[in-house]
Design a protein around this nucleic acid. Structure first.
Lengths: 239, 239
DNA sequence: GATTGTAATATGGTATACAATCTAAGTCAA
DNA sequence: TTGACTTAGATTGTATACCATATTACAATC
């Protein structure tokens, strides 16, 4: 009965570089933030579920101050919704908002793809290609968690080589809000074939420097993802 | 010890009667947030300036907890930058980021304008038209603060009628980060004529339902604004 | 069974304490 | 003067206790 939700993901080793002097001091708050965010996007808390401060204190092993600050952060990110005197809860996603988010991703990602097609070098292309390999591999193993991670890797490489870090931040934040849709989408039937295929098409267009084609491929990719999501959310709201 | 996960998640049965007290209780935190944000975007704190918690407590008349939570919020919004154990300061804007922000605004606003052209009704058009009148009037009085506010009003009406509230949130957040550039831009010479003229062009295209023209006008508008901003930021970094 | 009163709970907010860390001023040596 | 070292004060990070108020759960009542 004691739902001691494991807010303790695998302790990650800091990949301390060689001769790294400026080791940025990590505060407890940052750790708590990451864990709570991970717990939400990985669906350990369901949308609409109340987040009770004192329980979170216990589960995270930190004080109320820290929990409150972390909640303020996640609230601003759109992952948590707070009603005054009622407290925070995991943000719910309505169909309208989800649609807008998929539209925005299409807009942002296609623009990034177009720009990437104009400037990508061999190194950038290799990164994206590797990510695609990883995705195919993970799909074969039905390791959907890795699929999502590698997909992020693919797009991050694309946005970074297009020098669009601000846009990438926005996409990441949007992705957080639709994390449960993404999870369900990647694990839906036949997504293992169409998804990578469409991303391959994006990469192919970038490789030959065909910006418009890359943008179109992005829009295609997002359109199908958005379609699946729309069905999922309709099924959800039906229940 | 206490794991009562009841708390009625799906309560909230809003049987809104006419006697409904619609006024959501405002927390002290929200007030403090608005004031501090206003102080930053209105340039009462300069970029790079340290924000010392205890000073803010005094100035706002609230406790440290509230100030810290507010700072966490503004940090997530990108208006404040915090270095661990060194504290928060007003975020600085580099040329690269500013460029990206103007690009993003062009992308988002042109998409919204295109969508608006397809769906705007008389009421929407009236709102935008009124905003334009307000802008012209304020320019005549050199009341640049009102110019910015009315410009926001114009775009808000446009995004809302296009059903793009999420995109509008993003634009608003981006605008916060370039607030000082916007202030300087609107008050720069001859902006009082070109600015309203370009926006009039956007509205005109929306009015006749010409989506592509509306999008193009938006891009024009942002391009000139971005140009001015680029010069301003170059001058700034020179100093 | 619906309404109402009451107790338990959770939040919003304040104040305080204290260790870790940063900053700045001062000191001393070359 | 410059540079390195020291130290005192300022500031942040975190924890905790406390209170008032709003909300929720629950029992008593009609």
């Amino acid at each position: 009965m004691n739902k001691k939700i494991k807010l303790t993901p695998p302790a990650q080793k800091s990949k301390a570089g060689k001769l790294r002097i400026a080791e940025v001091p990590r505060t407890l708050r940052e750790l708590a933030l990451e864990r709570l965010r991970a717990a939400i996007v990985e669906f350990h808390f369901k949308p609409g579920q109340r987040l009770i401060e004192r329980d979170l204190c216990e589960q995270l092993g930190v004080s109320r101050s820290v929990v409150r600050e972390v909640i303020r952060h996640l609230e601003t990110e759109g992952l948590v919704h707070t009603i005054p005197h009622q407290g925070p809860s995991v943000a719910k996603l309505d169909a309208e908002t989800a649609t807008q988010i998929y539209e925005l991703r299409a807009l942002l990602e296609s623009a990034a793809a177009q720009a990437a097609a104009a400037v990508a070098n061999a190194n950038d292309l290799a990164k994206m290609s590797n990510a695609l390999d990883l995705i195919a591999d993970a799909y074969a193993r039905k390791d959907f968690h890795t699929v999502l991670g590698a997909t992020n890797g693919f797009y991050e490489a694309m946005f970074m080589c297009a020098h669009k870090s601000v846009a990438w931040d926005m996409v990441q934040r949007l992705n957080g809000r639709i994390s449960w849709l993404r999870s369900l989408t990647v694990s839906s039937v036949d997504r293992g074939s169409t998804g990578p295929m469409q991303m391959q098409k994006i990469l192919g267009a970038i490789k030959i420097g065909d910006g418009p084609a890359a943008a179109a491929a992005c829009r295609d990719h997002l359109a199908t993802a958005g379609e699946i999501a729309k069905r999922l959310i309709a099924a959800e709201e039906d229940a």
